[in-house]
Amino acid sequence: MTPLRAHIAAALSPVAPEADLGTVDPRAPLRPQLDLDSMDFLRLLAGLKQRLGIDIPEGDYGKVATLDALEAYLTARGAGLGAQSEGADGAHP
């Protein structure tokens, strides 16, 4: 698992502990595959903001609908650079 994907998994865990990113088709819409409703998705993105410091405004939700798209979005905004180690500290105390 890439470091970024590990962050996504860690942000997902408190929202949907049963969800397994390993079973996800990264190019298909994420929410139905993991059975996430709107509230769950909101909380997942809030968790990512906390870990990575990257805000995904509601207007951009359509751009992060698949796992690949979410990773690309986060990468384009600096995830995997400085934010990564910072977030990792918070992720694994």
């Binding site: 819409p29 929410r31 139905p32 709107s38 998705f41 509601e58 207007g59 939700y61 359509g62 609908a65």
Partner: peptide, 8 residues
């Protein structure tokens, strides 16, 4: 068919 998405 899609899920809630404000822009969509």
């Amino acid at each position: 068919e899609g899920e809630f998405d404000a822009e969509a």
